[in-house]
């Protein structure tokens, strides 16, 4: 059961506001975000429920949801929200909090893909499309998943097996090393690290 009390009921809302500037308490649960979301049907918690849970500090449920990972950042919801909330930005912020707080990913294929994508960029400075898809399909134990597609692409000369590379790769490595997850201060994680 979700316990509501004066000390914590606004915590999740406040964190989101501090990190993204978006105020989820503006949401009045009209449901338009869910209505237009192309992947709402795939989510375990609908977008308007995410907003509601954020309003009442149901943070665990939100941060462990598949929703935040299934969100495509298509901005359909943000464009149409009658309360002018950038819901996509809230989803984005929740993803980062979820990672920062070490929640396991309910969508490993998606989170794994992002990791591999970034690994490729970290290594070459640019994306190696071929390497990415091979590694991804290996990781999800379906190495032959897109083989038909790959052969087709290859025969059309669309795959550049070596990819492009940035000359100044040192700088790219530095960028990866120095970047922080949040632009704004994220107190919860600092406390966590201090512990």
């Amino acid at each position: 059961m979700l316990q509501l009390n004066a000390e914590t009921v606004h915590t999740c809302r406040d964190t989101i506001k501090r990190l993204s500037g978006e105020d989820v308490s503006r949401c009045f649960q009209c449901g338009k975000c869910t209505a237009g979301c192309p992947v709402a049907i795939d989510m375990d918690v609908t977008p308007n429920q995410v907003m509601r849970l954020a309003q009442i500090n149901g943070r665990e449920r939100v941060l462990a949801s598949s929703t935040i990972w299934l969100c495509l950042s298509c901005e359909t919801c943000s464009t149409r929200c009658p309360a002018d909330i950038d819901i996509a930005k809230v989803m984005d912020t929740l993803r980062k909090i979820s990672v920062a707080e070490g929640y396991p990913s309910p969508e490993p294929a998606i989170t794994g893909f992002h990791r591999l994508f970034l690994a490729s960029v970290e290594k070459y400075g640019r994306l190696n499309e071929l390497e990415l898809s091979i590694k991804h399909n290996l990781a999800i134990m379906k190495p032959t998943k897109d083989i038909r597609l790959a052969v087709g692409l290859f025969s059309k000369g669309k795959i550049n097996p070596f990819g492009g590379k940035v000359k100044d790769r040192e700088r790219v490595k530095k960028i990866f090393a120095e970047s922080q997850r949040f632009v704004k201060v994220y107190p919860e994680s600092i406390e966590r690290e201090a512990e």
Binding site: C30, G31, K32, C33, T34, A35, G36, C37, A40, T46, N48, T76, R80, P82
Partner: peptide, 18 residues
């Protein structure tokens, strides 16, 4: 739930709500 979009599909109108 508020409707997000209406579009024409042949002679019907698809109403997407929640």
């Amino acid at each position: 739930g508020r409707v997000s979009k209406i579009y024409q599909k042949s002679d019907k109108l698809v109403v997407r709500g929640a």
